[in-house]
């Protein structure tokens, strides 16, 4: 059966319109819910950098802890305007940073249970791995020197290789590392190769087969810790003076 050209073109046009209509309807009607899920997931990632034991808790509960114990401040130490915070997108700020434009650098303060003192500071990060974007939350103890925990995530690193930056086992290697050596900022560095022990305080064991992802990760950590340097040094000197 051979149809006329007019029929073929008409069929193709009709199909495009109908399928396009169905797809845009689906996208629009699910958009609200998807945004909510993404927001919840972001809160979960932030919280897991300081409370890894909550990894199995329902997201609503994690969000509750987030809402009661997290305060967001800017790099100058003042609270960020609520309107700015609402629209804040770390990936967009990252693009500004790459062009050396001023960017909003939020700091998530994790307060102690009674709300009087800071338990830890969580620094959001964004960067590029081997194939696509990577991001993370770098939590420091209240001394601003010691790593409390990190959470990394990625869009499309190779499963089993680069994607391992999302594994808890790899992230735990950062715990307890120092980002200051003799008073100088020294961003934690992931070495090449895996299985090394006895690494200094500013290096973590690498990922075998994922050197390029690790390079992207190191670049991200380095860029952001340097951006946050004024904030980090302020606290660090205060602590050393107190000692």
């Amino acid at each position: 059966m051979q149809q006329s050209n007019g029929y073929v073109i008409g069929f193709a046009v009709a199909m495009t319109v109908i399928l396009g209509g169905i797809l845009s309807f689906t996208a629009v009607s699910l958009n609200e819910r998807q945004k909510k899920e993404v927001a919840l997931d972001t809160k979960k990632q932030i919280m897991l950098s300081v409370l890894p034991e909550m990894s199995d808790s329902p997201k609503a509960k994690i969000a509750e802890v987030y809402d009661s114990r997290i305060q967001v401040i800017g790099i100058d130490g003042n609270a960020i305007d609520a309107a700015v915070l609402e629209k804040l997108d770390i990936s967009k700020e990252w693009k500004k940073l790459k062009k050396n434009q001023p960017a909003v650098l939020p700091i998530y303060k994790f307060m102690s249970k009674d709300g009087n003192s800071v338990d830890s500071y969580i620094l959001p990060m964004y960067g590029y791995g081997l194939w696509n974007d990577i991001w993370g939350y770098f939590a420091l103890e209240s001394d601003k020197k010691t790593v409390k925990g990190v959470v990394f995530s990625h869009k499309g690193e190779t499963p089993g290789l680069g994607a391992r930056i999302g594994d808890k086992e790899v992230q735990d290697r950062y715990i307890g590392k120092k980002i200051f050596v003799n008073g100088e900022l020294k961003p934690t560095f992931m070495v090449k190769g895996e299985g090394k022990t006895g690494l200094p305080d500013y290096e973590v064991d690498g990922l075998s087969g994922a050197t390029l992802t690790a390079i992207g990760l190191n670049e991200m950590v380095d860029r952001y810790l340097n951006q946050y340097k004024p904030f980090l040094e302020k606290g660090a000197s205060a602590v050393s003076m107190a000692q």
């Binding site: 699910l30 819910r33 998807q34 899920e37 919840l40 997931d41």
Partner: peptide, 9 residues
């Protein structure tokens, strides 16, 4: 799209 909305993880 449905997975992203209802089974995000």
């Amino acid at each position: 799209q449905v997975l992203k909305a209802y089974l995000y993880d």
